[in-house]
Amino acid sequence: MPFGEQPAYLRVASDLRKKISDGSLPPHARLPSQARIREEYGVSDTVALEARKVLMAEGLVEGRSGSGTYVRELPSARRVARTGYRTMEECTPFRQEQSDERVRGTWESRSEREEASHETAERLFIEPGDKVMRTRYVFQVEGEPVMLSTSWEPLALTGRTPVMLPEEGPLGGRGVVERMAAIDLVVDNVTEEVGSRPGRAEEMAALGGVPGHAVLVVARTYFAGKRAVETADVVVPADRFKLAYHLPVR
């Protein structure tokens, strides 16, 4: 194959992708059958099959049992605003994860004690095996799951205090900034690292997506001075969200 020339299956996939993009194949339209692709593009069954697999892997089409392959209706990307930690007045868990004031969300959560993994310990600057409180959240907008978060807090800081359980007690549901202030820890800085990876089966089941499709992961850690008080992984489907940062320039 000459340098720079695409394999046949990618050329076919590219043309079909263009038809989906310009509306020639609108949402819910049936994708041409394997035989039709073979005839229209003059390619083999193998090439036609591989082209369809590419579009399916990209999330542009979906198979329906006994019916065929159809163009997916892709949702508009929802903006997730990231502006660092919030003030106490607005620091509920949902506000903690995104600051778009137009969005009103609810959440479900579950907290459990566990031993810190090597990764969690590294992020919290504690020893592997130290006790932490892990809390898993499912965030919803208008009843639709849109975001997952798993947080870890060192029990050496919060154990036997009124804020040990993030969603229970006098400050249950208030968020990290206000809860830590109640035990004399002033949260004054936060770090975030954004990456992507294939969504895990349990994550996509919770979010109503397809296992293997890409997710964005925000690895966030709150600090009181140099002391890490909470770290979390925020997971959102990459095809449904875009992250927007607004940060001060000092």
Rank of each mutant, 00 (worst) to 15 (best):
R179P: 07
R179C: 11
M180S: 07
M180Y: 12
M180T: 06
M180P: 04
M180L: 15
A181N: 14
A181V: 02
A181G: 05
A181Q: 14
A181T: 01
A181C: 05
A181Y: 09
A182Y: 11
A182F: 10
A182R: 07
A182T: 02
I183C: 07
I183M: 06
I183T: 03
I183Q: 04
D184A: 14
D184K: 14
D184M: 11
L185P: 03
L185S: 07
L185T: 01
V186K: 15
V186Y: 12
V186S: 14
V187P: 05
V187Q: 10
V187Y: 09
D188A: 11
D188V: 08
D188I: 07
D188Q: 09
N189C: 10
N189G: 05
N189W: 12
N189M: 11
N189Q: 15
V190R: 11
V190Y: 06
V190N: 04
V190P: 02
T191M: 04
T191I: 05
T191P: 01
T191Y: 02
T191V: 05
E192W: 04
E192L: 09
E192M: 14
E193W: 05
E193Q: 13
E193M: 08
V194K: 06
V194T: 13
V194M: 06
V194I: 15
V194C: 05
V194H: 10
G195N: 05
G195K: 07
G195Y: 06
G195I: 03
G195C: 02
G195T: 15
S196A: 14
S196F: 08
S196D: 07
S196Y: 05
R197I: 02
R197C: 02
P198R: 12
P198T: 07
P198Q: 11
P198M: 12
P198L: 08
G199M: 01
G199N: 00
G199E: 04
G199V: 00
G199K: 00
G199S: 03
R200N: 00
R200S: 00
R200I: 01
A201K: 15
A201N: 09
A201M: 12
A201Q: 14
A201T: 13
A201L: 13
A201C: 05
A201S: 12
E202L: 03
E202F: 05
E202W: 07
E202C: 00
E203H: 01
E203N: 01
E203Y: 01
E203C: 03
M204G: 00
M204H: 02
M204Q: 08
M204E: 05
M204C: 01
A205V: 01
A205D: 09
A205L: 14
A205S: 12
A205Y: 04
A205F: 04
A206M: 02
A206Y: 02
A206L: 15
L207H: 02
L207P: 00
L207S: 01
G208D: 03
G208M: 00
G208V: 03
G209N: 04
G209K: 06
G209M: 03
G209W: 01
G209H: 04
V210C: 08
V210D: 10
V210S: 12
V210F: 07
V210W: 08
P211M: 10
P211C: 12
P211E: 14
P211L: 10
P211Y: 10
P211T: 07
G212N: 11
G212M: 13
G212A: 13
G212F: 10
G212E: 15
G212R: 10
G212Y: 09
G212L: 10
H213V: 03
H213S: 15
H213N: 14
H213D: 15
H213Y: 11
H213L: 09
